[in-house]
Computed example of a mutant assay.
Amino acid sequence: MYAEGVPCWVDAQLPDVDAGKRFYGELFGWTFETAYGASVWARLDGRPVAALAHKTDGRMPTVWTVYFATPDAEATARRIQVAGGQVVMAPFPVDGLGTAALAADPEGAVFGLWQAGSHQGFGIRHRPGAFAWAQLYARDTETANTFYGHLFHEALFGPGAEPDFGRVPVTDVFPEVMPPHFLVHFGVEDCEAAIGAVSRLGGRVTAGPFTASYGTVAVVTDNQGASFAVLER
């Protein structure tokens, strides 16, 4: 089980899940199986790495969302509100797999919470084709550090912390008008080759490649407009 505050799962809300399966299956070598409802789990070497879900409301953004582990989603949601964040979607059960919630930090960046049931989260990470990092692009990194530091202190600053979660100004990579947001990073063996594959599959490159403290990064969108990053370490 993942410790509180550690990124433990990601999902994409897409207009066309089948198109997403073709795109990500080719890009990362994922295979897929039905998870619950209209959602599918992506697997790498047989282990779960992400979910693709059908976007039921066209007004919702087409996005990747990162989920942070929590032992008690209800309690964490209350702490988020006390700290100046918002609960976008109150904790709800997911078919016996666990309990999920959506929240936003004081600057409006949206993230998820996951209280594990039978589904613990990533079965594999930190390798090509799997989750590698979550970067928060914030207007005010001091505000972000204060909020997340109180919310997930042990994961970020405790002994032996390996948070897989960074915080930088949004203007480091994006135009000033870009709202604060999380960007999910997936590992790749070769960043240049990965962005070539993204373009060939109908996606596009929006930033980079550039060198960050944690590796070589390119920000891309898939063939339906969901943004993510590829990370070569």
Rank of each mutant, 00 (worst) to 15 (best):
Y2G: 02
C8T: 13
V10R: 01
D11A: 10
D16F: 04
V17H: 13
K21L: 05
K21S: 04
L27K: 07
G29C: 11
W30C: 09
T34P: 12
A35P: 02
R43A: 09
A51H: 09
L52P: 12
A53E: 08
T56W: 02
G58M: 08
R59T: 14
M60W: 13
V63M: 12
W64M: 07
W64I: 09
V66L: 04
Y67T: 07
T70I: 11
A73F: 05
A73H: 06
A77W: 05
A77D: 06
R79K: 15
V82M: 09
A83E: 13
G85A: 10
V88W: 01
P91S: 11
V94E: 04
L97A: 15
T99F: 00
A103H: 06
A104F: 03
D105Q: 08
G108H: 04
V110Y: 00
A116K: 03
A116D: 06
A116H: 10
S118R: 14
Q120H: 13
F122Q: 11
F122R: 11
F122E: 10
R125K: 15
H126F: 05
H126L: 13
H126V: 02
R127Q: 15
G129W: 06
A132T: 10
Q135Y: 00
L136M: 10
L136Y: 05
A138Y: 06
D140Q: 02
T141F: 02
T141M: 10
N145T: 03
T146E: 11
T146R: 15
F147N: 06
F152L: 04
F157R: 04
P159H: 04
G160H: 04
A161D: 03
F165I: 02
F165L: 14
V170E: 00
V188S: 08
D190M: 03
C191K: 01
C191M: 02
E192W: 00
E192G: 07
A193S: 13
I195H: 06
S199E: 14
G202E: 10
R204D: 10
R204W: 00
T206R: 13
P209L: 07
T211N: 14
T211D: 15
T216A: 06
V217Q: 02
V219G: 07
T221F: 02
Q224A: 14
G225K: 12
A226F: 12
E232C: 10
